[in-house]
Design a protein around this nucleic acid. Structure first.
Length: 432
DNA sequence: TCTGGGGTCCTAGGACCC
DNA sequence: TCTGGGGTCCTAGGACCC
């Protein structure tokens, strides 16, 4: 039996690469992409990294640097990224019968037994994604997910691997010396806090961590760290999760406002809109929510308590996916939270205790009036989702989310690129 | 003046029960 | 008035990920 081979394929500087796909003139030039509301930097090209733009830095803090260095800036264009992500993922699915889509730009593939030359096979995948979609990927391989992640780090950081690194093909001596050169903070699952704790016991490199006794890892740290150590040792603890997006356990929709809001009505508009979106996602995965939480974040006047977050959670008498019912409950929660003297900078809605919809049918069976009414609501929601899907987001809503468009509070997106692949009006024009 | 949004998993502690 | 041990369930919060 051959050892397991897990590959992690990920798109290099994904958002930047998506923008460049339609702006080839920006190839080899510094480019960054901002988060929602143009809040902070979430993606950087290699050239921008070299110029010293840190990851996650607030936009206002690097604005000058960016302008002076001639860096091109984009607001996030999620419809574009989601569309390109989908193309990459479906192409990757043809290389393996077992795929986990881990994030918008990352996918695990089980490549066990696919080839005796895994590194070459990886190069084939890279080339195919480049030719068919036009995006650059790096590929890491190893016997566990954590090792595949680590291999991916090497594939990306060290040119010697030419974008594909297979730890499974290395001798233990080779691995040992490579691991001794990687800081422990690069390991998947080791964040800032754990890095500090490990530092105290002089565990600084991947090699150190790999040697840690697993029972000690569990006793002194946590069950999570024990798993990480085992995975580094080649003992698989994390399975490929081939769940569709259908399996979410909670659904959140939240946004910062373009400027602080004080009026209840404006905040209600936002909450209604967020609830509508969350409910749409809920119906898309055929679930019902049992609880709903509303939270609002206030920016206070005193600098030492600049932001304060409050939340109210309500249990619904019956699990539901009905937008109207969810919005009603969201408003109840909001009214408990709202203080007229506060300035609110962000709000959100969270749907929790999600159950599969097929389950509810049986609960309601026999209560004919309720069944009839639930059926009618279902039909209404189906029609709404259908129209919004066909004609664009939120053509049809429930009137609570405000009629004035553009809504004054929606997020800033000052540098957004066109919807090249998702809007007929914005298709790129090819010059002959 | 300006610091994203959407997730998962684990743990500690309180309430309650026997 | 003193006060054990064990179990479950729930919630809040931390840590981490992209």
């Amino acid at each position: 039996m051959s050892t397991r081979c897990i590959a992690l394929v990920d798109v290099n500087n994904f958002y930047v690469s998506c923008e460049r796909l339609f702006r080839p003139d920006l190839m080899n030039l510094p480019v960054i992409v901002l988060s929602n509301n143009d809040g902070c930097v979430v993606a950087r090209s290699e050239e921008a990294k070299v110029l010293g733009v840190p990851m996650g830095v607030p936009w206002f803090r690097v604005r000058e640097l960016v302008k002076n260095s001639g860096i091109t800036v984009f607001s996030s264009n999620y419809p574009l990224y989601a569309d390109l992500s989908h193309r990459v993922m479906s192409l990757l699915s043809t290389f393996s019968s077992s795929q986990e889509i881990y994030s918008i730009d990352e996918s695990f593939l089980d490549l066990t037994g696919m080839s005796s030359q895994m590194e070459q096979y990886g190069q084939v995948i890279r080339k195919r994604v480049d030719q068919w979609v036009g995006l650059p990927v790096s590929i890491g391989m190893g016997p566990t997910k954590t090792l595949a992640k680590l291999a991916n780090y090497l594939a990306k950081k060290r040119p010697v691997y030419r974008g594909v690194c297979d730890l499974g093909a290395m001798s233990s001596g080779q691995m040992e010396s490579i691991f001794a050169s990687i800081p422990v903070s690069e390991v998947w699952g080791i964040g800032r806090r754990t890095t500090e704790l490990l530092e105290r016991v002089h565990i600084r490199t991947v090699a150190h961590l790999r040697e840690l006794d697993t029972t000690v890892a569990r006793r002194r740290f946590s069950i999570v760290l024990e798993r990480v150590v085992k995975e580094l040792q080649g003992i698989s603890c994390l399975d490929l999760e081939q769940i569709l997006p259908a399996g979410r356990q909670q659904i959140i929709c939240s946004r910062s406002f373009s400027h602080p809001l004080t009026g209840l009505n404006e905040i209600k508009e936002a909450i209604a809109l967020y609830t509508e979106r969350a409910a749409e996602k809920l119906r898309l995965q055929c679930s019902l929510a049992g609880r709903i939480q509303v939270f609002i974040q206030a920016s206070l006047f005193k600098p030492e308590e600049r932001r304060h977050s409050y939340a109210v959670t309500l249990s619904l008498s019956l699990p539901t996916d009905d937008t109207a019912c969810l919005v009603r409950n969201a408003f109840l929660a909001l009214e408990k939270l709202y203080r007229p003297e506060s300035r609110y900078v962000k709000a959100g809605v969270m749907l929790m205790e999600l159950h599969s919809k097929s389950h509810r049918q049986s609960v309601l069976f026999g209560v004919s009036e309720e069944v009839q009414s639930a059926k009618r609501r279902d039909q209404l929601m189906n029609v709404m989702d259908g129209i919004n899907h066909r004609w664009g987001k939120h053509i049809l809503g429930l009137g609570w989310s405000g009629l004035a468009k553009p809504r004054p509070w929606v997020m800033k997106q000052d540098y957004k690129s066109p919807g090249y692949t998702t809007d007929w009006q914005q298709l790129p024009v090819v010059k002959a």
